[in-house]
Design a protein around this nucleic acid. Structure first.
Lengths: 339, 339
DNA sequence: TTGTACGCGTTATCAT
DNA sequence: ATGATAACGCGTACAA
């Protein structure tokens, strides 16, 4: 590997001069500069970044910790991060926590010893130890996907309470009288708890009957199973809110097997506005989350924080918007349907 | 930031001793070791990796260049890469080429100056300049998704010719007599050209009529449009091969509008075995590609190459396997259907 | 304008 | 078993 010293020797100048040319600094004779630059070009030389980092005490690198990449939302956010990071001439160091909280802690430490300038953490779950590690991180941390501002950690996330409320009020407005909720356990704060709470508040406000199924994992199959569970007891809803599009897809399948057609006998709403919404039969109405945009903004905010003075515990909350599609409809208004 | 010297001072020993403890090297008195280790733990110290790299002349880092992350296949492969990279105690430097060939070239250079130990490139397209850059890379390069072994570059990819052939022969075996092909332009070598060629060879072998539509982009909508184009001329196929699942989804929609039911009047096969296959109506038969597994193997091979002696221009080709689902069926065997 | 000399934090060599 | 010291490649005061 070539070094700055090699180039200096070849050019018959000192290392300092080469360094100046390399970093386009003033104070070098034009002809000397040209000569050195030529040498640099033709020998395909690039400065050793480890040495550079060691000296500069920073790395122009942002660390990203994800729970898993094979998720549409995660992939979209990471895409957003990396777009911004690259336009800011920084690099992306990606780490995979494999859904393990403990691994996340370790990754934070590794990233710090790597000397990254900032860290973006996509949170799946957390515990007290992780919070501590996060707070002790030398590199500024940005939490994405959950609100940890109570712990003094800058967070950006979607307003899941509002999404639940939005879905609930949309269903009641449509005239639904008998609802079903398909959700995941409340141990998942954002998807499990917040979306549920928002929905409950909307439903209670309208004082409408509702059946709650909250034991799904995130698979389509589990949505199908949980919906079946309720349907098998003879419960016949005219409105369903599933906390993710995939669960909604499973629910629609279960409904169909019981002779209920989504968008006709029963209105169905999901969350995420995944591509699969458009291929479903009927196309699925959903609360739209713009993950790409959120990713971009999260990265922008972090980088701005790095450059200006770091403020603490900021909160940025994004709101989903309702994407109307055929599944959000009732053929016959239940109130009129007295047979 | 703490350094090894700080710890040494606190412990009342020399830097060397701390270094030995840190790296779990022998030759340290047990009590001293315990004391130093305690200090390291409680002060949350981790060695500066830039300094380490400078000394070691390597970075334990693999660079990954992707064309875009918001694609199931890419995300799955990157997930595979990162899993392996982490179990090998290395780091992942992620770069986004945004589908631009030129950017890919630049990224290769940047990664080299970063001193990465190896580079994985997910290829979308390429030109001569990129090939040159790839060949000149100091860090070993592994090409994923296309076969560039002719240029002396180690490549792992799916055997797309075989996938096309597999789809074609499955349709003819089912008894189809009138086929339709929904594809993308041949400028895309893997998806556009190879899958087409394999399919053509299978169809020609059986000497069956086929209509070729090859101007889709990768959107569901374009699959719908191109299928419509053929259907509007009155063409009524009893078997369809779409080169991606998404295109197949669009095709099924178009077929339905013309009164043709997939899995009954016409057999349909896609490629990729995307999750959407299972939510479609009917569920879509597809040539299954295990992107996660390929990602893992690609990373393993690269890392093995780094450690053993680098061999050149290796080729690893993976085969898709047919995933049978309801869309692959004909209610009435065409040959018997003489009305 | 140019060069000299030192320090960044670590590991490895060589004494002790 | 432990410590002093050099070296990795770069940037930068400071001197010339």
């Amino acid at each position: 590997m070539k070094t700055i010293a090699n180039i200096a020797e070849m050019a018959g100048v000192s290392k300092s001069t080469v360094s100046r040319v390399l970093n386009k600094r003033p104070g070098v004779n034009a002809t000397v500069r040209a000569k050195v630059q030529a040498l640099i070009d033709e020998s395909n030389f690039t400065a050793n970044i480890a040495a550079k980092n060691l000296k500069a005490r920073n790395s122009d690198t942002i660390g990203i910790i994800v729970p898993l990449l094979t998720s549409k939302s995660v992939a979209a956010m990471v895409q957003g991060f990396s777009e911004i990071i690259e336009t800011e001439n920084m690099q992306t160091l990606l780490m995979n926590a494999g859904m393990q909280v403990e691994k996340t802690s370790n990754h934070i430490k590794t990233l710090n010893s790597k000397g990254v300038d900032g860290i973006i953490v996509l949170m799946a779950g957390y515990n007290q130890e992780l919070i501590e590690t996060l707070k002790q991180s030398a590199a500024p941390v940005m939490i994405v996907g959950q609100d940890l501002s109570l712990h003094g950690l800058t967070s950006v996330f979607f307003d899941d309470y509002r999404s639940g409320f939005l879905a609930g009020s949309n269903l009641t407005q449509l005239g639904c009288k008998k609802l079903m909720f398909i959700g995941v356990p409340q141990s998942d704060v954002a998807v499990g708890r917040q979306r549920l709470r928002g929905f409950v508040d909307a439903v209670d406000l309208a004082n409408i009957e509702c059946r709650y199924q909250t034991n799904c994992d995130f698979s389509l199959e589990s949505g199908y199973q949980q919906a079946k569970l309720a349907l098998n007891t003879g419960y016949r809803p005219d409105g369903v809110f599933a906390v993710t599009d995939r669960l909604a897809a499973g629910t629609i399948k279960a409904l169909r097997e019981c002779g209920l057609v989504a968008g006709k006998d029963v209105a169905v709403i999901g969350v995420g506005d995944d591509e699969l919404c458009t291929v479903l039969e009927p196309p699925l109405a959903s609360v739209h989350y713009d993950y790409l945009k959120m990713g971009k903004e999260a990265a922008s905010v972090l980088i701005k924080q790095l450059r200006d003075n770091p403020s603490e515990g900021l909160t940025f909350s994004y709101q989903g918007r309702f994407a109307q599609r055929e599944s959000y409809a009732l053929d016959v208004h239940p109130a009129e349907q007295q047979e």
